[in-house]
Design a protein around this nucleic acid. Structure first.
Lengths: 185, 185
DNA sequence: GGGTCAACCAAGCAAGCGCTAGTGTAAATG
DNA sequence: CATTTACACTAGCGCTTGCTTGGTTGACCC
């Protein structure tokens, strides 16, 4: 088995899996569906991944790693005012949400399907990303750019940004989706 | 079968189902698990609901109907300034999110599992609720209370509010949950 | 040209799934 | 008293699931 490496083949399979997981949801996506989409037989899948769970973990890991890279680059590139850094961070966030849309939607909707070990590992990645956000928000608070409770501000900002995956459709203004364009509670 | 009525027994079963759907997700929740939680055998479940899908629809319907009632009451009770109405609406929204938490989390995560007929029916309920929001936001824009694109403003407000179900835990400040307290994309 | 190795396949197993059929029974209804 | 209704039961059918097994292929290497 290829379990631990990051072969190009595995990367591609992961990308395809992400797409299917978004379309059908993790539980509804069978290993046979995944295999067919990948052009192989279902048994062959387990040459690349230990089990179905590992495919899910690979999808989320990939997405979160890319988010970290993009955010760091954006922060390096912009000037050091709190406003510019906040702007850069928000923009990087939305950029990631779009380019790795599938992976992030999966992370959002299927996180609970991860087993404890995978969850622990991916939590570290996530925490690293959140640390960037908290840093930037602290600066914004210190400069008086925004006001309010540090905790609440960051939750609300992240909420508003992340929620975009539910209603923003890059394919066009009003393509029918399988979830409601918006949601009322 | 009791399919169409709203017997008190069915209401209670629906409440229990909502809890299980939140804990396990719709697909992972088997009719046998539901039956056990309800203290009956799996076959007996189909006396109350036509099929598993109908249980899901019942959960979401219940939650959305309650949201509508609460929001309307709140709007009736407050005075007519745009600020007061916006405040009342936001408060009612969060109140619903808390009291019918399970139902709303299910609606948020499992909407896609609904079959087309159920989805169409529930969309109407949802639209009725959203109409209240749009009305209030329009008033706020007209009075200059908030600025910006009407569409974007309502999405961002709803996003920030709805996102609370992901990090706010009514049981206490830091109880471990099965999803990340917050999320980084 | 024999050996290596990732990649793949055909076949199938054990477990679990939603749901149905048919029956029993106590309370409500005529 | 006779009949219907609401609710529960047992038993199991037909099918799908994730995953395993044992073997084949073809490109590359010394």
């Amino acid at each position: 088995m290829n379990v631990m490496n990051a072969s190009p083949r595995r990367k591609e399979l992961t990308r395809l899996a992400a797409q299917l997981f978004v379309q059908e949801g993790f539980d509804r996506t069978t290993v046979r569906m995944l295999a067919q989409e990948m052009g192989i037989k279902s048994g062959s899948l387990f040459h690349h991944f230990r089990d179905k769970q590992e495919i899910l973990a690979a999808v989320i890991e990939e997405g979160t790693e890319n988010a970290l890279v993009i955010a760091r680059e954006a922060l390096d590139r912009c000037d050091s005012s709190a406003s510019a850094r906040l702007h850069a961070m928000a923009r990087a966030h939305l950029e990631t949400l779009l380019t790795d849309r599938n992976a992030h939607v999966v992370a959002l909707y299927e996180w609970r399907r991860l087993d404890p070990e995978a969850r622990a590992h991916l939590s570290h990645l996530r925490d690293a990303y959140e640390a960037l956000w908290e840093e930037v928000i602290d600066e914004a608070l210190a400069e008086g750019l925004v006001h309010g409770d540090r905790f609440l501000v960051s939750r609300f900002v992240m909420g508003a940004l992340n929620w975009t995956v539910r209603w923003y459709d890059p394919k066009g203004p009003r393509t029918p989706t399988s979830w409601p364009m918006s949601w009322s509670p």
